[in-house]
Design a protein around this nucleic acid. Structure first.
Lengths: 153, 153
DNA sequence: TCGTAAATTTAGCCATGGCTTAGTTTATAC
DNA sequence: GTATAAACTAAGCCATGGCTAAATTTACGA
């Protein structure tokens, strides 16, 4: 093992490693959040499309996600397998109860993050982009902290 | 197309859809961030291990990520292919210049998010977990907003 | 009604990143 | 110095989620 530099020693003091299992747990949470990410993005988007346009077509879902139609279709098939949506061949996409309630929860979370970012002075364009990425990784506790700040005047 | 309910009409007013290409862009940013996520997690962890323990062994990387050794090894191989790390068979793992500078940037970002969460009243345990997920999805603009709040008394 | 364009599906490609099982190398302890 | 344990690699499995190209179905306008 090479000797430790002064700098390294300093950083090791200031920023000690976590316990291995606590750190592993944090990464596990991220990986799990990650698995739900695309599911949440899809149901949220589908719900928005149904609300604004009366129906959710694959072509529109793909366009708004910025991916090809077959890619979107493949994921929609998974969502159907997992009970979030229903749709018959060549028809538009509907949310199940399960899908709708996940969509509602996701949108709520998304909105809190978005409004919070605006509140602390982030521009609208950046708030839109960052909230899309951040929404899947904030716990209820953090959301509550965000809500307190939103509501504070 | 089915008729729109009163509720839906209301929500459509309050939360209009974004432009398709702006929305697609936001998702593209998330997907790209996503591709960098594991790279950043690895180099940051490897750097921390080198600093605290003098070297980074695969067994430790795997343990702290909470995944199997072969899984960690496969990703390390990718990182080597992409020029972030070097390592010879059965030896410990080193960061290249490129890897080291990414690690530094990631740690900085991670620390800002972590400290910010503490500052707004999130518990230490939650701040550790959430910062792990959030760090990859905050823009420089948002980080600056976080820094302002951290520095504000 | 019928031809064409748009939407959707199918098939098959690729990379990532999990996993297990089994083999190899290294390090250690006796 | 050698046996054993620990660390690592190899091989091969799986699901996800991108892609393209080609086939099919639907919808629409002339």
């Amino acid at each position: 093992m090479p000797p430790m530099s002064a700098d390294s020693a300093k950083r090791a003091m200031e920023r000690p490693l976590q316990e291995p299992d606590a750190q592993a747990e944090a990464f596990a949470v991220v990986r799990q959040a990650h698995q739900m990410e695309s599911t949440e993005d899809y149901v949220e988007l589908i719900d928005d499309l149904i609300t604004s346009q009366g129906e959710a077509r694959l072509v529109e879902v793909a366009e708004r996600l910025g991916i090809s139609q077959p890619s979107a279709g493949k994921t929609i098939a998974r969502l159907q397998r997992e009970g979030y949506v229903t749709s018959e061949p060549y028809r538009s996409i509907f949310l199940t109860e399960k899908g709708k309630s996940l969509a509602d929860k996701s949108r709520e979370r998304h909105d809190v993050v978005y409004k919070f970012l605006l509140k602390i002075g982030v521009s609208d364009a950046t708030a839109k982009i960052d909230s899309e990425g951040v929404e899947h990784h904030v716990s209820e506790e953090t959301l509550d902290a965000f809500r307190r700040i939103i509501d504070a005047g």
